[in-house]
Design a protein around this nucleic acid. Structure first.
Lengths: 136, 136
DNA sequence: CACATACCTGACGTATAGGTTAACCCTTGC
DNA sequence: GCAAGGGTTAACCTATACGTCAGGTATGTG
């Protein structure tokens, strides 16, 4: 695909894109500083294409999933090189699997904590009832 | 139960406790600085009892669950309240209920994140298979 | 006594993810 | 002609959770 396809792709400034995505312009510039996105420039003004927007969405998604900006950058770099490289996909799968394992561990621990806390709750409840009786 | 029961409880220094728990002494002192534990002192030297050790274990578990030290401190404070005062019990129950609600919320979010990641995983898997085919 | 250890406090450094502010440049409209 | 509004960089501030000295004290041993 040649680089000039459709001119219909809306271009945006940082502020517009930020509003669109629910982050601040500062955040987007910060990501650029960290090498996660590199918009074109019109003079010194940043110009974002639909592709850039899609990339930002991937970044935010990565963040939601608990990856650090550095990790996100590395994974996005994998995409950029070539989608068909099996080796890179292997790395991605590995990273995702690791993260999943960690999350599942957290899930188990969290469930356990809830059970424990429910125990504390019922004990506090019982003690409260006792205190009530004594006072009566 | 009176406060002096068995003298058999082993006492430890920061370094000993740290090694025992797999953290550094600096970490333990830091927690003290943040009000999470307050060991007794022998002169200026910190002295940790079995209770202190148990408390440290609770702290570390909280950390594993991804809570901030501040949250952990608040959470431990709940345990410290006098269990016999009705008013305090009321506050305790309230705090525990709030924390439980928050934990359940986190649980839901975590489960959702896992589902999303599993999705990413299966897509990466599919792409990997595709790449394999192409190369063959 | 001197030296090795271990403990203490205090202060500064690090990484992550931005927020805030300052000072400056351009463009547009009245 | 100039203020308003948006864009830019640079630099400093924040919070979290420690690591890493520096400098000082106390204890025990040959």
């Amino acid at each position: 695909m040649p680089s000039q396809t459709k001119t219909a792709d809306a271009l945006h400034t940082v502020t517009q894109l930020a509003r669109d995505l629910g982050v601040t312009a500062r955040t987007i510039r910060f990501y650029e500083d960290k090498g996660l996105i590199t918009p074109q420039r019109a003079g010194s003004t940043r110009v974002y294409t639909a592709r850039d927007r899609a990339r930002m969405i991937l970044i935010l998604r990565g963040k939601r999933l608990g990856f650090s900006l550095r990790e996100i950058r590395d994974y996005l770099d994998l995409y950029d090189v070539d989608h068909t490289q099996a080796e890179q996909l292997r790395l991605l799968r590995h990273a995702v699997a690791k993260r999943l394992a960690s999350l599942r561990e957290q899930l188990t621990a969290l469930q356990q904590t809830i059970v424990e806390l429910e125990d504390v709750q019922s004990q506090a409840e019982a003690a409260y009832q006792q205190a009530g009786k004594k006072r009566a």
